[in-house]
């Protein structure tokens, strides 16, 4: 059986909220290392990869590998019943029809129990190669969100260019052009505000802003976001979570003249 207890329901609520507009039905693959999810969006342009490691739960028990096929809209309805600070426990049998969710508020002695019906989801899994990216940029997640939202007002696409001097986001649209350049910057007192750039070679790529704005719904999960780029491969947008868990988004580039 599976039994996984999260100190704060907030984490799962935010993860599901960040991905539910991108993917609708997906498997939560549970094994002894944790709970993983991998799903492409309907257009097969983006891929979501989430890993909640066993260490993020306390306790965590998973006797047999189990795939929990969940409709995220339905899961959202159930999670709405959990307060952010509630202790959340996920439970399932070895061949489950339902996922049992328990929300506890120890202060008020409230215990809520929900059963979510599961589905059989035949999902193709993609092998994601370990990539040595040419550019890795770490920046405040709210800054990245602001840039994407601002540029989307002008254009569908953004060019991202990185050099040792900085990272430049630029777009061209019907009403005009826009560009935002961030230079590396270190703030000792507020490390969350740092912009860090590691570069082995310059990169220039174009991406759909609609997807990037969608990824930015995860900004509440982490104060910083990491962008990993190499020419002509998908962009990796990573939000690191506590206990080496993560929420990653991969976005295929736009290629051509």
């Amino acid at each position: 059986m599976l039994e996984a207890r999260l100190e704060q329901a907030d984490l799962l609520k935010k993860v599901v909220d960040a991905i539910k507009d991108l993917v609708q039905d997906c498997n939560f693959d549970c094994n002894d290392s944790g709970v993983a999810l991998q799903a492409m969006d309907n257009s097969h342009v983006a891929l979501v990869s989430m890993m909640l490691k066993a260490e993020s739960f306390s306790p965590y028990r998973c006797d047999r590998n189990v795939a929990l096929g969940v409709n995220l809209t339905s899961l959202t309805k159930v999670l709405r019943a959990a307060q952010n600070e509630d202790i959340l426990t996920l439970k399932a049998e070895d061949a489950p029809d339902v996922l049992n969710l328990v929300f506890e508020n120890t202060d008020s002695d409230r215990l809520s129990e929900y059963d979510l019906k599961l589905m059989d989801i035949d999902q193709e899994h993609l092998g994601i190669p370990d990539t040595e990216y040419a550019a890795t940029i770490s920046l405040p997640s709210v800054e990245f969100r602001r840039i994407c939202v601002d540029l989307m007002a002008l254009s569908e696409s953004v060019s991202i260019e990185t050099s040792k001097d900085g990272i430049k986001f630029s777009c061209a649209g019907d009403i005009g052009n826009g560009a935002v350049t961030l230079r590396p910057n270190t703030n000792v007192e507020k490390p969350d505000q740092n912009v860090e750039i590691e570069l082995t070679e310059p990169v220039a790529l174009t991406f759909s802003l609609k997807y990037l704005v969608n990824f930015c719904k995860a900004a509440g999960l982490s104060k910083t976001v990491k962008l990993c780029l190499s020419n002509e491969v998908p962009l990796l947008v990573e939000y690191a979570l506590a206990g080496s868990s993560y929420l990653r988004f991969y976005l295929a580039p736009k290629i051509g003249d």
């Binding site: 492409m40 097969h44 899994h125 092998g127 491969v233 580039p253 736009k254």
Partner: peptide, 14 residues
């Protein structure tokens, strides 16, 4: 114009 690539063309099917 640039063409949107598909993510599955970059990653191998398991």
């Amino acid at each position: 114009a640039k063409t949107q690539q598909s993510i599955s063309s970059f990653f191998t099917k398991k």
